[in-house]
């Protein structure tokens, strides 16, 4: 189990101080696939690097099965890093080593006998589906294959936790699905806890059980993926789940108001809302964007409407009366 307690990280260079993380509290259970999602600059990468102490937190604790990692000396920490391994966006393989030698690398660091390391590395390459690439160099492989080698390498020291730092962000959608499938398989087969850092909602939906939404260095909300997707409670959550983008050409902010509407179940999603508004309230709304997301058999939806300022109050009254529907006026649009 990973417990993150009151974690803060401040980067300072001279006079400049940047609070990258501010009072983060998370608990990641054994065997979970835990997503940490946020926009660029939300502090995701810093947070994941605090979990294995590549970044030392400014304050707060990271507990791995009750051990306070911040209190360990360098030697003990290196030992922990064999239990908490990592894969990266750019794969970070050693380019002058073959795939087999890359997978052997962490075992070499740990002092495993060469013959044993080679045997285990061969098994791992088989596990990730690349038994024929043992002698190939990373430059000869595709991105997806390189990430598979990186995963094999991360498994070499029998870790308990696999940290995935934007592991699929450099891959195309098909390859992304395959790599996510592999992570899910590893999680199921070997019981390894996976912490998945991403900026892609689709990744979280695909494999995560729990998710934390990171916004400006704080946890905006967290919980089961289905719950967070069904009814995002935070502003950051709603922005991520139902992104709304507005061009100035589409809507003039001086005499138009924007409304973000979230349908919290399938029945609500199927309401012909714009038509109702027009018929019942005589409010002419234009649809700026609309999405639906199927999660756990339910369909959730989000919509961004633009209405005349004068009709805003009437529209809000009407929409607020509909059950399982969240509505709010949008004042700071994501561009």
């Amino acid at each position: 189990m990973i417990e993150i307690r009151h974690l803060c990280k401040t980067f300072s260079s001279g006079e400049d101080r940047v609070d990258a993380l501010n009072d983060i509290n998370l608990t990641i259970a054994d065997g979970d696939i835990y997503g940490i999602i946020g926009m660029s600059g939300a502090g995701k990468s810093t947070l994941v690097r605090c979990i294995n102490m590549l970044e030392r937190p400014t304050s707060g604790q990271v507990l791995l099965d009750g051990r306070n990692l911040g209190a360990l000396d360098q030697a003990a920490l290196r030992q922990v890093r064999r239990e908490v391994t990592m894969i990266f966006q750019q794969f970070n393989l050693l380019m002058q080593r073959t795939c087999l030698q890359n997978v052997c690398f962490p075992m070499e660091l740990a002092g495993v006998k060469k013959a044993d390391a080679r045997r285990r590395a061969t098994e791992l390459l088989e596990l990730v589906g690349l038994p024929d690439k043992a002698g190939a160099y990373p430059a000869q492989l595709s991105g997806g294959q390189q990430q598979r080698v990186a995963i094999a390498r991360a498994l070499a020291t029998d870790p308990k936790v696999l940290l995935c730092d934007e592991a699929t962000s450099a891959l195309d959608p098909n390859t992304t699905a395959q790599i996510l499938g592999l992570i899910r398989e590893i999680n199921a087969k070997l019981g390894i806890t996976a912490v998945v850092i991403t900026h892609q909602m689709s990744v979280v939906k695909e494999i995560c059980r729990h998710v934390a939404i990171l916004d400006h260095g704080t946890v905006a909300e967290e919980g089961l993926v289905s719950a967070v997707f069904a009814a995002p409670k935070s502003e950051a959550g709603r922005r991520l789940v139902f992104p709304g983008r507005v061009d100035e050409q589409v809507s003039d902010p001086r005499d138009q108001s924007q409304l973000r509407i979230i349908f919290r179940d399938s029945r609500t999603t199927s309401i012909p809302l714009v038509a109702w508004l027009a018929r019942e309230q005589n409010v002419m709304a234009s649809v700026i964007s609309a999405t639906t997301q199927p999660i756990d058999g339910e369909t959730y939806g989000g919509m961004l409407l633009s209405v005349n300022r004068g009709e805003l109050a009437a529209a809000l009254d009407f929409l607020n009366a509909i059950p399982n529907l969240t509505v709010e006026e949008v004042t700071d649009l994501v561009r």
Binding site: R81, M86, P106, L109
Partner: peptide, 29 residues
Amino acid sequence: DPNIIEAAASMGATPMQIITKVMIPESVP
């Protein structure tokens, strides 16, 4: 690539191991 050095550190490499097994071999050409 500093990312490769970071990756080695994330696997529990000592500074000496990073120098002799990553920095020097990776820059041989």
